[in-house]
Amino acid sequence: MNTALKIFKYVLYDVLRSKMIIIYTLLLLIISFGIIFIGKDVTKAVLSLLNIVLLVVPLVSIIFGTIHFYSSREFMEMLLAMPVKRKNIFWAEYAGLSLALAAGFSVGTGLPLLIYGGISGAFQLIVSGVMLTFIFTALAFLSSVKNKDKARGIGLSLVIWFYLSVIFDALVLLLYYLFSSYPLEKATIIISGLNPVDLARMLILLQLDVSALMGYTGATLQKFFGSDYGMVFSVILLLFWAIVPTVLSLRIFNRKDF
C-alpha cells in the first residue's frame, strides 16, 4: 500500500473519533431534523439549510482545519523523521481531515433529507457542502503552512472566512450600487466565480426554482448556471478553488522547516 494511504488511514481514525467531529455531526443532525420537522416542507427546509451550510461549513472547516494542522505539527515532525516523503504526509493529513469533515457534514445534513425523501436541490446542497469542506480545509492548510505562529494562523483563517462569507457580498453590493446604470448580468456570472461560497449558493438556488424571484439578473443566471455548460463551469470553478490552495500549501510544506 502507498505510504500516503497508510498514514491517511490513521489520520482518518483520529479525526473521526475527535469530539469536535462528533459534535459537528450531531449538531447538523439536530438542526436538519428540526428544520424539516417544524417546516413540514422539505423544499423550504433545503432553503433554510442552505443558509446554515454556507455559513457553518466554511467556518468549521477552516477553523478546525487550522487547529488540527497546528496540533499535528509534532506528529508530522515525527513522521518526517521516518522514511516518508513530505508530499505523502501532506496528502494523508489533507485527505484524512477533509474526508472526515465531509463525512460529518454528509451524515448530519444528508441523512435527514434522505429519510424525508430526497428532493430537488438536496443533492446539490450535499455536493456543494462537500466541495466547500474541501475548499476551506485547503485554505486552512494554506494559512497554517504560511504562519508558524498558531494565533496568527487562526487569525488569518478567520479573516479569509469573514472575507468570503460576509465582506465579499458587501463589496459586490457596493459595486452594483455604483454601476447600477450598467447591465451587470454577465459581470455577475464572473464575479460569482471569484467566491466559492457565492458559487455554491448559486448552484443550489437555481435548482430550487426560486430564481424567478430574483428578476432579470436571476433569469440570466438561471439561463447560464441552469444549463449543463453552467453546471460544468461551476463544478470546475469549485474544483479550482480546492486545488489551487492545496497545491500552494503543498509547495510551501515541501520547503518548510519544522
Binding site: Y10, D14, R73, F75, M78, A81, M82, P83, V84
Partner: peptide
C-alpha cells in the same frame, strides 16, 4: 531515514489513536 530512529523532545502522537 530508514537507518535512523528518532525520539523528539515532546511526545507527539494523535490523541484519538
Amino acid at each position: 531515514k530508514k537507518h535512523i530512529g528518532y525520539m523528539p523532545q515532546y511526545s507527539c502522537f494523535p490523541d484519538n489513536l
